[in-house]
Design a protein around this nucleic acid. Structure first.
Lengths: 339, 339
DNA sequence: CTGTTAGCGCCTTCAA
DNA sequence: TTGAAGGCGCTAACAG
């Protein structure tokens, strides 16, 4: 290990006090320009570098923020993280990444570890059902902000899209295309709020348009292509086959389309499809997929901004903020019957 | 801020010395089981949490590793990061993410910031041409490990794929398909080693198979769909039009295919295409794209392992490791003329 | 304007 | 087996 040069080394060399060096380095107004300049130069010359650890220990503020997501290598979470990093980095914060792999225990471990690291805040898209872990964070008075997969809690800010609206506009669009028998394939757990809300939006759209709701048309799967194929197999073994599918996942939508095509069922003529997330690939396909954009970059930036805003406030002003981004329906070939 | 409970609080409550508490907490063998148990319980009860900052300041080891990439929201880098995180997290490290946006200055800033944070190592896929920044890291005796976009330097380990081989097998495959006039579209800067090597592999394959090399067939673009289209426009305005394209980017390959299709040129019959990276979408398309897999998850894991291995060694053993992962050609429809 | 002192939370000698 | 003291690098309060 290279011997670290500290302010004491500089002080010694210059025959002044360490505190003076510290002040000079921090551009304290009470230091003469002469000493300031001298200190700066010597620091440079000696290859001095401030130790953020010491500052953090002293100040109780690390300028680190922990971000917990299921996985980092998906377009959605990657983009959210990018948004967070872009915004926070500009304010001198660094971002520590943790993955849960959708495992509650792993999530708890991550929280524990981040708290030990004294992060100034934790942003997360949770995979947990119980709230014990969140309580731990709040008990430490560390700001907790949910994005996307939130948990409705007091004193906790969140940044999400309006998933209910997302489900609603997707379903409404299918209805407008003339579909009457609309299936819904949800992903993950209906215990997770966002999926429940998309589902609720779907139901509401049916209700508002006098279309009967049928449990047979609702499936729950994982978010991948193979499960999309399976879902279609199940749905099309029903006596009363659907004429549209609203999927809460673009991957499931893709699998569904592939399976339908193999079954010689025409998309969108016989069955119209809408996915969710606006994954880039949905737009690359010859039969491009209609979907709902969640604005992940924006979501990340917003999450960071909510935190920064909170930080600037006095305790009294620290009210929870529930930021809701309006999702956007993107109509593409898989559901467009006009042409 | 919730008053932090420290080992002193525990010591006070138990009427013992803080040092004893510290030892008990760290399972020091010289502490009686009775006190150990007592301390553990009280710590639990008081909701004590060890402060990693203090430990880091004392020990000079933060257990944080900085990772610098151009962007986090791409499949490739997202997957590398996931690999790194998976592996390091298991060893008690946390990962700090920084993005450069392909900006050298930003990269330098990130390095500076990570060094101030006293990270135990820096992993990066560099966007820089000069090596000043790297020297700073090495001067601090902080392990620096490159992945993917490396810079050949002494005392620096790297984990990459064999980009030369990647270029070679892609080109060789096209030759085997009967192509004689193979264009190469490179992305980014040929100053970046990996692109230069893919290009070199391409040339070598031509040479080994007695196919004349022509500068007209080599273009440099950015890695996106639109530039892929442009590249095709340029290549097909030549008198002597190519019958194959090896692209160093899947996105460029996609753009190329789309443009060719609009020009009524058949892929792969008239023009065979091979991309690079095995982005997920290449496999989703009706006309799936042949490509070269870079095993990003593996790359991330390897990078982490190289670091962990180095850490376990004595100084004398700390030799640089150049890990090279063999890339894999994946033949899909865009270049498969057998069918 | 500058120096002295103390302390952030922990661990690690050195003593007992 | 346990306690006391010092220090990691820095800043802030208190003196001059």
């Amino acid at each position: 290990m290279a011997k670290k040069v500290t302010i004491y080394d500089i002080a010694e060399k210059l025959n002044i006090a360490a505190a003076t060096v510290s002040r000079a380095l921090n551009d304290n107004p009470k230091i003469s320009d002469a000493t300031k300049k001298l200190v700066m130069e010597t620091a440079e010359k000696m290859n001095y570098r401030q130790n953020r650890l010491a500052i953090a220990l002293k100040s109780g503020k690390t300028n680190n923020v922990g971000v917990i997501v299921p996985r980092v290598n998906t377009n959605f979470f990657g983009s959210v993280i990018r948004g967070i990093e872009d915004e926070l980095n500009a304010s001198g914060y660094q971002v520590i990444i943790c993955q849960t792999h959708n495992d509650e225990e792993k999530e708890a471990d991550n929280v524990e570890s981040l708290l030990n690291s004294q992060v100034d805040a934790i942003f997360m898209s949770t995979s947990s059902r119980n709230t014990d872990t969140f309580d731990k964070i709040l008990k430490k008075k560390i700001p907790l902000i949910f994005f996307d997969r939130k948990k409705t809690m007091d004193n906790v800010s969140s940044v999400t899209i309006d998933d209910f609206a997302g489900g609603y506009i997707a379903t409404k669009h299918l209805i407008d295309q003339g579909c009457k028998k609309i299936a819904h394939v949800s992903t993950g757990d209906l215990n997770i709020e966002i999926f429940r809300e998309r589902f609720a939006g779907y139901k509401q759209a049916l209700y508002d348009n006098n279309i009967p709701y049928s449990e047979d048309y609702v499936l729950t799967t994982k978010s991948n292509i193979e499960d999309g194929r399976e879902a279609v197999k199940k749905l099309f073994s029903l006596k009363n086959k659907p004429d549209a599918i609203f999927s809460a996942s673009d991957f499931v939508a893709l699998g569904a389309i592939k399976e339908l095509q193999e079954m010689k069922i025409k998309v969108p003529k016989d069955v119209a499809i809408v996915g969710f997330s606006n994954e880039p690939f949905t737009n690359f396909l010859e039969l491009s997929i209609s979907t709902v954009d969640q604005f992940p970059l924006e979501m990340g930036r917003m999450t960071a901004r909510v935190f920064l805003a909170q930080t600037d406030m006095t305790d009294l002003d620290k009210i929870q903020k529930k930021v809701v981004i309006e999702p956007k329906l993107i109509v593409r070939k898989s559901s467009d019957r006009r042409s």
